[in-house]
């Protein structure tokens, strides 16, 4: 369905020190049809950046994104815009995503208008159906973004993302502002839609329990790289970082400096001199791990 090949993103920062922040560092990622890949990892590890790159909302510094056999990085803007109806985002901060001057109705209806899909009556009916699907009252549609609660706004953004029956959605912390009951209904809704419409999801979350429930596969990100990926990663973690993320082991330091080699070196309870060279990703019975412990030397 969607595939990222050797993706990197460097944010240049500062005029003085021309040293950039490497937000995403040589990532290969693939999400198949009707599959949910959960992306977990600590704050700042590059999850949102990677998600946005897959939708070309952020341009990668290098690498390719293949969607439906087309390389998105080489498309013109118009072509890309047409494809956009098949790829959506539920952004981490919904307040950023909506125009504060528009009533919520117009924000949800916008995708229909851009892609010239529905007539006026159809549009109204669909918008009403969508807002009900996410468990909100139609009355809310006549309000502005600042006139609803955080979790209500998050659900409006979800309604907008599913409006055009996309094939792929990047869900970036989609339930971070919902109580656990509403979270359960929203997650069930997303899973239902996936089955009915064969959608694929990249599901970014800090809630490891939730990740384990929704995901077919899990990818763990650390310092811009995917360090472990596969099925059952959280039940049986192989990478030392995944083990610290789950609290099975503790990092041996608080200072995450990485001059060269493995990026987890300074914190890793199992490090050895080999780790001063960068590890390669190895594949073992469906699991991919980037760690010297599992490489043949």
């Amino acid at each position: 369905m969607i595939k990222g090949i050797n993706l990197s993103k460097i944010y240049e920062s500062g005029f003085i020190s021309k040293k950039g922040i490497v937000a995403v560092d040589g990532v290969d990622i693939e999400i198949r049809e009707q599959e949910t890949l959960a992306l977990v990892g600590e704050s700042g590890s590059g999850k949102s950046t990677l998600g946005r790159i897959l939708l070309l909302l952020t341009k990668p510094t290098s690498g390719k994104v293949i969607f439906d056999r087309v390389d998105l990085t080489r498309l013109r803007n118009r072509k890309l815009r047409d494809l956009r109806r098949k790829m959506q985002i539920i952004p981490q901060h919904p307040e950023d995503a909506l125009d504060p001057r528009w009533k919520l109705y117009d924000s949800i209806a916008e995708p229909f208008r851009i892609h010239k899909i529905a007539g006026k009556d159809d549009e109204e009916e669909t918008v009403h159906k969508l807002i009900e699907l996410v468990g909100l009252d139609q009355e809310l549609l006549r309000r502005y973004p600042h006139e609803v609660s955080g979790g209500e706004l998050q659900r409006v953004v979800i309604a907008r993302a599913i409006a055009l029956n996309p094939k792929f959605i990047v869900c970036d912390e989609p339930t971070s502002m919902l109580d656990v009951s509403v979270q359960a209904s929203v997650v069930n809704l997303l899973m239902d839609l996936q089955r009915k419409l064969s959608m694929s999801y990249l599901f970014i979350t800090h809630d490891l329990e939730l990740a384990d429930i929704v995901a077919d596969r899990i990818a763990v990100m650390y310092a811009g790289q995917i360090v472990e990926e596969g099925i059952g990663v959280l039940k049986d973690p192989l990478h030392p970082y995944t083990q610290t993320l789950l609290g099975i082991t503790t990092p041996i330091s608080r200072e995450a400096i990485t001059p060269r080699g493995c990026k987890f070196y300074n914190l890793c309870p199992e490090r050895s001199s080999k780790c001063l060279n960068a590890p390669k990703t190895v594949e073992m019975s469906g699991r991919r791990v980037k760690c010297h412990l599992y490489m043949e030397h």
């Binding site: 977990v40 990892g41 600590e42 704050s43 981490q92 955080g150 912390e173 971070s176 502002m177 800090h206 490891l208 610290t244 993320l245 609290g247």
Partner: peptide
Amino acid sequence: EPTKGIDMT
């Protein structure tokens, strides 16, 4: 919501 979107560590 001070812990919204923040990982365990």
